Amino acid sequence: MNDTEPSAVPWLSADEQRAWRAFVRVHLKLSARMAADLQSHSGLSSADFEVLVAVTDVSEGRVRFQDLAKDLDWEQSRLSHQIRRMIKRDLVAREECEEDGRGAYVAISEHGRAVIEAAAPRHVRVVRRLVLDGLTAEEFAELGRLSAKLSDQIDRVETA
């Protein structure tokens, strides 16, 4: 019997199920609220914001395409489609990589930098109101530790 057979999988206990469902609810609620706020106040999707944050996190304002896909944990095709949409809106540009003719950079445009700089202060205020204001400093630090631990677990474990 392998772990994909229903009889081999132990069901969640009532406490585990309550905690799991609460975690899923908060993730979905937070994602939806953050996305709606970004869209209504800055015209950015969550995906736009993720890309712009990642590109502005580097001093050069540009990132190799494959490094960006890895940083965001996105498939190459998803990133390609997203970047194409963002280029049309002048948020980023595609720059060829002179060192490697097959490689390319995603670079933030002047317009993209202005948009993210305008969106970021409100985004931080919303994060504070929705999350930080509801937790003590110790709880927020624990949330960070637990999130990092879960992220590492997800990276290590195959689900197939």
Results as ranks from 00 to 15, higher is better:
H27R: 10
M34W: 01
A141G: 10
V53Y: 07
S13F: 00
V26W: 12
R78C: 08
K70R: 14
V115T: 10
A8E: 15
R125W: 01
S46G: 09
W20A: 13
A119K: 02
C97Q: 10
E50C: 12
L132W: 07
G144T: 07
V24Q: 04
S109M: 01
V131Y: 00
S40M: 08
D67Y: 11
V24A: 05
R102H: 12
V53F: 10
R78V: 09
V127H: 07
A8H: 11
R145Q: 15
G101F: 10
M34I: 09
P10Q: 03
D155S: 15
P6C: 07
S40R: 15
V53K: 05
A120W: 14
Q153E: 15
S109F: 03
V24M: 10
V51T: 01
R84N: 14
G43C: 01
A36Y: 06
L38K: 00
K88F: 07
E5L: 14
R33A: 15
L52Q: 03
L12N: 06
A32S: 12
I116P: 02
A141L: 13
S109H: 00
L72I: 03
E110W: 08
R21W: 02
A137N: 11
E96F: 08
R156A: 15
T4C: 11
A104M: 07
H27D: 06
A32M: 06
E50Y: 11
K29L: 13
E60C: 09
V106C: 06
R102I: 07
T4D: 11
A120E: 12
V115C: 04
R33G: 03
Q76H: 12
D90T: 09
E99G: 11
S40C: 08
L132A: 14
A35M: 00
A120G: 04
R125Y: 04
A14G: 05
R89Q: 10
A69V: 03
L72E: 06
K70Y: 09
A148S: 15
G112V: 05
